Amino acid sequence: MTDIAVIGAGMAGLVCAQQLTQAGYSVLVVEKSRGLGGRLATRRLYGTWADHGACYLKPQGELCKNLVQLLCDRHILKDWTDNTQLNSTPRYIAPEGMSAIAKFLAQGLEVWKNQRVIAIHPTPENNWRLTLESGDAELIVKAVVLAIPAPQALMLLSPLGEDVLGKEFLDNLSSVEFAPCISAIAGYPANSQLLPNWQDQKFTDDAVLGWIGLDSSKRPHPQQPVFVFQSNANFAQLHLESPDLQPVGQEMLQQAAQNLKLSWLETPEWMQVHRWRYAFPSVPWKNTVLSTVTPLPLVCCGDWCGGHLVEDAMISGIAASWEINNYLR
């Protein structure tokens, strides 16, 4: 028996879990992936690592500024502001990868990784029962926080129906929409190319690309140039269900080579491609949390509540902890 289960170990889930733990509750974080952070994602490959989700933080809002300052003091973040551009916005990166932020936020928490929740049901004793895909255990908890994208939360909760959750809650949850993205990580021969003098490039009207960054410029001792390419939402939607993403990634590299007049970008030594089905909230929920009117406390939170930024995820996580605390108190 645990007081609270937090489903999802992204920014909102970890912030919420820390707040509730500090309030004296027993909290268990359940994460379906093998790593922490959600879109604060770092992939280790070919002797290096690269950020293929969120690639940097902008200290937008007081909460995010305080977090950035704390992480800088702990040498987890460092300044990556592009001083070659006029009026450039301060940006911060993690030399050990953006997932280092999540690892910091998870300190002291009980986290079950590689555990997918496949069903949630109320019990006769007025608790929640969570069924795990592994079948090894069921969790009985007093309250549930779903810190996952709204479409994933809807798939998990819709079997409960309107009788348990209420029509308004399910309608609100189904109104949230996300835009997808495809990320390609590519490594190039060391010292064989004249690297560009920029850290990243953003594309606003391109048919394929949304952003490209020289990821190896964030690493303390890079062994080779590594770039991260991110598609725009329309291109990602076209190829989201492709069984083989390698040709999709190759098309992104070809487009970058053509746009930037760097023909060698087409021929990397290696490449990995990742699909983000829920990359950016395109139609967010208007409030900082979405909670049920059921007698059993169940709250949804994330960057899709009240906005789409990291700051919004932090605010939503804190708001979810307040909501749960009010329920249980």
Rank of each mutant, 00 (worst) to 15 (best):
I140D: 00
A257F: 05
T89R: 15
S26E: 10
G166M: 05
P220R: 14
L70C: 14
V144D: 07
V208A: 06
W276I: 10
I4L: 07
G307L: 11
L86S: 10
I101S: 09
H239F: 13
Q272M: 01
A233C: 08
A236T: 02
C16Q: 08
L328N: 02
R44N: 00
Y278W: 15
I93H: 09
N259L: 11
Q224Y: 07
P281T: 04
N87E: 08
P189E: 06
P225S: 03
L165H: 05
S216N: 03
L195Q: 13
L139K: 00
R34Y: 09
E177D: 12
G249C: 08
L262T: 08
P284T: 05
K32I: 00
I7K: 09
D171Q: 15
N87W: 10
H52N: 11
F104Y: 11
L86E: 03
L77M: 04
E311F: 13
W49V: 00
Q115N: 06
N287A: 13
R329N: 14
L157D: 06
V228L: 08
S174D: 11
M1A: 14
G24D: 07
G187A: 05
E133M: 10
F104I: 00
G61L: 13
A236M: 11
Q69E: 15
L28T: 11
E110G: 11
E311D: 15
G13R: 03
Q69R: 15
L195H: 05
L194C: 11
P225R: 01
L45D: 02
W198E: 12
G306P: 05
M1V: 07
N83I: 14
P180N: 07
N126W: 00
P124H: 03
S282H: 02
Q223A: 10
I76H: 01
K113T: 14
K65S: 15
L139P: 00
V15N: 13
Q193N: 12
L139E: 00
Q201G: 06
E62W: 14
K65G: 15
K286H: 12
F235C: 07
T2S: 03
P122D: 03
T294S: 15
L63R: 15
K202R: 12
V228K: 01
S174H: 13
G306K: 02
A150V: 03
I101W: 03
G187Q: 00
D206Q: 00
L20D: 05
S282Q: 08
S242P: 07
L154D: 04
A319R: 09
W80S: 14
I4V: 13
I101M: 08
L328H: 02
F178H: 11
T204Y: 00
W112H: 11
L156V: 05
E31L: 12
N114P: 08
S231L: 05
K286R: 12
P225L: 02
S316T: 04
L63N: 15
L109F: 05
L86C: 08
P95K: 09
G161N: 09
G306L: 02
I93R: 09
E62K: 15
I118V: 12
P196K: 04
L63H: 15
T204W: 00
S26A: 10
G213T: 11
P151K: 01
P295Y: 07
P149S: 04
R74W: 03
T123I: 01
